[in-house]
Structures are given as C-alpha cells and as structure tokens.
Design a protein around this nucleic acid. Structure first.
Length: 441
DNA sequence: GTATAGTATATGGGGTGACA
DNA sequence: TGTCACCCCATATACTATAC
C-alpha cells in the first residue's frame, strides 16, 4: 500500500491502475483517509478502519465537493469515533433518523386538523372493509355518514328544495392547525354551537374527542398535541348534556278538547291519533299495523317493536277496538290511505296540528302522544313495569333486566282501566259492546 | 290539501373496559 | 360484582320543501 502525504496536486495526479476497476491511495498523515480512483477517473475520499475485527469503509465524498483539508478533518473525526468503539455508520443513521423526526415534527406542527381528520376517516373506512373485524369495533355506514355530515363545509345546494346545506359543527375546528387546539378554543367552539344546536354540538364534541384520542396514539400527531385538551373538566361543563324533551305532552285538562278535535278528523287519521294516545306506541309501530296484527276475538294487538325483535303483544282495549273495527279495509294496513304509494298513512301530523290549533291546544308531536300515555298512566296508578311493557320500553332497571313478562290478561286489566279513565276525562260516553266487555279473558 | 322525500336533530340501546 | 363513562351506532322525531 502506497502511503504519501496527500496534497491537492498529488490527489489530482492519482490514476486508476490499468486493468483494475478502482485503485486506492492512502494518506500518510491521517490514518484511515484514502482516495478511491475508478477506471472512469472518478475520485472520492474514503475513510477505512477496523472496528470489532471488521473493516468499516465509509465514503466521505468526491474531491470536487470536499477540499483536502475538510476531508482530512472528517477522517480524523471518524477515527476518533472508531477509537471510542462507535460505529460511525450507526451514528449517521441515528442522526438521519433524528433529522427526519425533526422534519416530521415540523410538518406535524404545521398540520391542519383537517389533514388528521381525513386520515382518521380513511383509517376508519379501511377498517370498515375488513369484515372479520366484529361489528361494534368497526364503524357502520351510518356512523361514517354522521362524521361526514358534521364535518361538511356546507353551502352545497340541497338535493331537494331550495337553499344550501348548513355547515357541520366540526367544520370550524378542521380549519385550525393541530397545535392551535386547546381547551379554550374547544370551549368557545362548544359555547357558540350550543346556542343554536345543542345536541349537534354534543355529538360533534364526542366525535372530536374520539378523533383526538386516536390522534394521540399516532406517532405523527401524538408528539405535537395535548392529549388532555378534550378531557378538561371546564370544557366538559360547556358541552350540552342530553336532555329529554319537556312539555311535549298533553295534560289531563287537555283531553276533552283534544279528543273533540281529533274525532272530527277523517276516520283513519282520527283512529290513528287516538290509538297512539291510548297505547303509547311509537308512530311507525302504529302506522305499520296490519289487520293480521289485530286479534278482535282475543283483544290483542301485535306491535312490531323497535326494541324487541320479536315484537310485543298489547291489549286491545274496548274503545280502541271499536275505532279500529269501524275502519275501511282497503288493504293490509289498518291505517290505510287511498293516495299514498305504500297504501298507508304517511303524514298524520298535519291534520293533527290542525286539530290542535282548532282546539286551542299547545303544539304536541306524535311522540308527545306517547309521552302523554306514560305521564297520564300515573293518574290510574298503573305500575311502571306495566306501562313499560305496553309501550315497549327496554327494561332498564336492574330488577327489570330479566324482564318480568307479565301475562296479557294482567296488562289488559290495567290498560282497560286506563282507557276508561281517559274516556271519562275526555267526556266521551262509550258503552262497550258485549265483545268489548270481554276484553279481559 | 295531502303525500312524499330530503336534511337536520334528538334519544338512547348495548358492548366494553376502568375502577371502586 | 356493580357502577359508570365512553364509544359506536340505530333509529327515532323535527323541520322543510316539492310533487301531485
């Protein structure tokens, strides 16, 4: 091995040995510093040393980029590392990784919430495509749609009707940078949204919190965001809580006016509305009633239940039976309609609202009639379990968990008593027929 | 005036896991 | 073992407009 002290001139004069693809020349001054000359006359400084019994050769760089003095300094630095038992390649890799991390951090700090949000949705969408992930651990179509709705920019023309769609509650947040999100921003956001759409605001918050927690677990965002912002008690206080609707219910004193006005409507709508009030059924449960579901002989109604897949059987009380029996049998539907596409009533609220206004009653929704059933039941001291079973409430109390399935006869006793009380309050003189008297068999 | 259909909003069931 | 909060999500109602 030829060892001469490198000089700029010497380095320029080194040539590759003919017949070789490359030739190495070594500096006599700095141990390990070498020059590689290829058959194409490409020259670059290298460093070579031995570490743990193995040769380490590192290219410093081309002679065009590295003046001799710099190359010597670099070689000396590398030699120090080798003497310390440090592998310069590994150190370089670590530094490279650090630099990359710094770059990623910078990028993460710049990242908009929307960037992360879209990544979040993409992640969840991907999970939705994996059928083997059990339901409940992956999103349903509906849930995804909710996320898209709540984050939409709005302003698109509505597909039906004039005007444009409104901006989703999450949209303003998505325009901020990830690092801009703090408890105050979220608090202000909730305060503002809760003014006009409280439940939306709450749902938006729940979605955002789930999203934020996901971000915390992602390396690209976890380092730049504060995981606790969505947990702050202050903020949680600002988030509207779920409230049940109040006041949307008929009072005892309203009954006579309500019945008078509703009984003046067309027979189908009239029977339908009274059936809602007298059974506490949900509007669609009642609207989808078919003649098959009614047993006039044994005075029962089979209701397709929202909660219980198999449906529920409720008593057919005498007055209600007389109303239903008088309805025209145009098709399978009990509450049929001549003009509706599916053959049954579709929008009973309009006549109902008209009746309410004629009767001078406050607005009550169809669901309000269901609430009315529950609240007025207290006047006849109907046990809560009976009320729940007739209405098809899911058993919530621990005692009800293994549902006491009460016999229809027992339900009928209470239900009949209740109907009689309502009719009396409404001032309706109803003399049950012989069949009606056998409601309880 | 009624039927229909869209968006917007509300409610709560049910599984899960942390925690006392 | 029970409670509770959380999350996912289904499914309801509310509102509003057009179609007929």
């Amino acid at each position: 091995m030829k060892r001469d002290n490198f000089t700029a001139d010497r380095v320029a004069s080194f040539k590759c040995k003919s017949g070789s693809k490359q030739t190495f020349f070594w500096d006599g001054k700095i141990p390990g510093l070498g020059l590689r000359v290829t058959s194409n006359e490409a020259k670059s400084y290298i460093f070579q040393a031995e570490l743990y019994g193995k040769t380490v050769r590192i290219t410093i760089g081309s002679i065009q980029a590295w003046p001799l003095g710099k190359a010597q300094t670099e070689a000396a630095r590398l030699k120090v590392l080798i003497d310390q038992g440090i592998d310069p390649r590994q150190q370089a890799a670590e530094q490279c990784a650090k630099a990359e991390a710094a770059e990623a951090l910078k990028k993460s700090k710049e990242a908009l919430v929307n960037d992360a949000w879209q990544a979040y949705l993409a992640y969840q969408k991907d999970k939705m495509n994996h059928a083997h992930i059990e339901r409940g651990k992956r999103w349903g179509e509906r849930h995804l749609k909710d996320h898209e709705n709540l984050s939409q920019a709005g302003g698109d023309p509505k597909k039906r009707g004039g005007g444009v769609t409104t901006q989703g509650v999450l949209y303003p947040l998505l325009q901020l940078r990830m690092t801009d999100i703090n408890a105050n921003v979220l608090k202000e956001w909730q305060r503002k949204e809760a003014e006009t759409r409280a439940n939306n605001a709450r749902q938006g918050f729940e979605m955002f919190r789930a999203f934020w927690r996901w971000c915390v677990s992602r390396t690209e965002y976890g380092v730049v965001i504060d995981p606790l912002v969505v947990e702050s008690k202050d903020l949680r206080d600002e988030v509207p809580s779920r409230k049940s609707k109040q006041f949307d219910v008929l009072q005892r004193s309203h009954l006579s006016a309500w019945f008078a006005a509703v009984r003046a409507l067309n027979p189908v709508i009239s029977a339908y509305l009274q059936a809602l009030l007298l059974t506490g059924a949900r509007r669609e449960e009642m609207a989808s009633l078919t003649w098959q579901d009614i047993d006039f002989q044994w005075n029962s109604i089979w209701v397709k239940d929202k909660v219980h897949e198999e449906g529920r059987k409720i008593p057919l009380t005498p007055y209600l039976a007389s109303l239903l029996a008088a309805l025209p049998r145009r098709n399978q539907w009990v509450f049929s309609s001549v003009s509706a596409a599916n053959g049954r009533i579709a929008e009973p609220r309009i006549p109902h609202n008209r009746a309410l206004s004629v009767a001078g009653l406050p607005p009550v929704t169809l669901h309000g009639l269901r609430r009315t059933f529950a609240s007025l039941a207290e006047w006849v001291e109907m046990p809560r379990g009976i009320v729940a079973q007739i209405m098809g409430h899911a058993p919530s109390a621990t005692a009800e968990r293994h549902y006491i399935n009460r016999p229809l006869e027992l339900l009928a006793v209470w239900h009949g008593k209740y109907e009689a009380w309502i009719l009396q309050e409404a001032g309706i003189n109803f003399a049950p027929t012989q069949a009606g008297l056998h409601a309880v068999k």
